[in-house]
Design a protein around this nucleic acid. Sequence first.
DNA 1: CGAATATGCAAGTCTTGGGTTGCACACCTC
DNA 2: GAGGTGTGCAACCCAAGACTTGCATATTCG
Lengths: 106, 106
Amino acid sequence: MSTSVPTALFAALADDTRWGILTRLGEAPASASALARELPVSRQAIVKHLEVLRAAGLVEAETHGRELVHRALGGRLSALARDLDRIAESWDRRLADIKRLAEEGG
Amino acid sequence: MSTSVPTALFAALADDTRWGILTRLGEAPASASALARELPVSRQAIVKHLEVLRAAGLVEAETHGRELVHRALGGRLSALARDLDRIAESWDRRLADIKRLAEEGG
DNA sequence: CGAATATGCAAGTCTTGGGTTGCACACCTC
DNA sequence: GAGGTGTGCAACCCAAGACTTGCATATTCG
């Protein structure tokens, strides 16, 4: 098992523009060109971000006519949420153990 | 409300070395020098990482004699987990709505 | 068919940030 | 008090990646 939380996924989420694109797609699917009209960055920048998001499993694309429509997928995110919650709990539990041992035994 | 998930927190988690330090601190608190002995990076690199982690609220430091002992805090992480889960759910729900409307109305 | 629009590929720029080395300083210990 | 050890500050190097502009290529619609 070990870590199970790839930092690559965090990296995909760590950029403001990319996060903006992702949450925008969460509201409704859209093409790269459509996003470029809404956001203050070039279409090429958006395309690159979409590629990163797709590689991370956060976005899925589908051809619609001559458009490539992208949509946000909740699966990876909710899986990440579960992992993080488990990890956070283990940290706090371990800290409580250490503190307890120190007070009892020390 | 809006976003509520600062990408800065993701950025703090997005580096392999930093994530290694963080999970290591999750097992047991340690000083920067102690970590430098375990990990294949310089103490200064670790110090910088710890500063980032502390700024993100993921780590807390306490002076022990002449040592500065750092420990991982689960709070921020579990809060992030809750936020992500909520967001993921909203995405999927919205997608389901769109698909349903398309099939019913279209 | 032809114009408009959507996508893809390709440099090339420039900032960010992870990492190092070196040095000065403090503090506990012997 | 002297030495070893833990920190802090500073300058510097270098690769990664976020964006841009430009051009070539389809493909839908009138």
